[in-house]
């Protein structure tokens, strides 16, 4: 938060050891804590939601089923019936890991683990490696033919092949930076406007009146962040689906 007359907008992304020296030895910070919380929330949502096993579902069960059907539809429609079903749990895990991370990170006193490039890049590189392995599994060495577009003049190959390879390799980078940058930008803005509110409120009556503006902005920003959090999780999941579709049948 604000300290003195400066705004520490990036301090919220700092990692601190938890559970004392024991946690420090295990390199435990608030990031793994919130990853575990997010996963537990998603699992609890599914377990408690599906507990009644009702034919006519209640609210929570209906929500659990809708989320299941939504991600399943996403995977099956993009990748295909058979392979989409095989990849569905992975897509579901990715989507809800990111979504829960983004949303829980919006709560006060919490932490957004998707705002770390190391985390998002780890996820993106996992998707990238799975895509390459899937491509090799289903297409064999024919996979490498895609780096030379069909019908293009052979003379252009010295230019085309590096471009294609570069665009392929840039996928995990763009995938990870998109999520990371969106989350960082949103949280920096929230922090800056929150700091403005506090600083202006410290300036007396006029400041109190003026402080309303950043507060209102922050409320609107929170709504925007709810949209961004969902959208980024969706984008990550759908791009993974598209990459996997390319990997299974090209």
């Amino acid at each position: 938060m604000a300290s003195g007359s400066t705004i520490d907008a990036l301090g919220q992304f700092e990692l601190h050891p938890i559970f004392g020296s024991f946690g420090e030895a295990l390199r435990l910070s608030q990031a793994p804590l919130f990853m575990a919380i997010s996963s537990a929330v998603v699992l609890a949502f599914l377990y408690f939601g599906m507990k009644p096993k009702a034919v006519v579902p209640g609210r929570l069960q209906a929500a659990a089923e809708v989320s299941y059907d939504f991600v399943r539809g996403l995977a099956v429609d993009t990748i295909g019936e058979e392979k989409g079903t095989a990849f569905f749990p992975f897509i579901f895990a990715l989507f809800f890991f990111i979504l829960a991370g983004n949303y829980i990170g919006l709560l006060p006193f919490s932490y957004t683990f998707t705002s770390h490039i190391a985390v998002t890049f780890a996820m993106a590189i996992t998707v990238f490696i799975i895509c390459i392995l899937t491509s090799l599994r289903f297409q064999g060495l024919g996979f490498f033919k895609h780096f030379m577009p069909e019908g293009a003049p052979v003379a252009l190959s010295p230019i085309l092949i590096p471009i294609e390879i570069l665009s392929y390799i840039s996928r995990p980078i763009s995938l990870s930076i998109r999520l990371f940058a969106n989350m960082v930008a949103g949280h920096v803005l929230l922090e800056v406007f929150a700091s403005f509110t506090i600083m202006l409120a410290g300036l007396g009556v006029v400041g109190d009146v003026l402080a309303v503006t950043p507060l209102v902005l922050n409320i609107a920003l929170t709504a925007l962040e709810l949209l961004v959090g969902l959208l980024q999780a969706y984008v990550f999941a759908i791009l993974t689906c598209i990459y996997l579709r390319e990997a299974v049948d090209h």
Partner: peptide, 24 residues
């Protein structure tokens, strides 16, 4: 801590994935 969160994250994600795909 930054390096640690990647390792922990991978571990938590794998457990999360296994629980999801095997049980939930």
């Amino acid at each position: 801590l930054l390096q640690g969160q990647v390792v922990w994250g991978a571990l938590i994600f794998i457990i999360f994935y296994l629980l999801l795909s095997r049980s939930a």
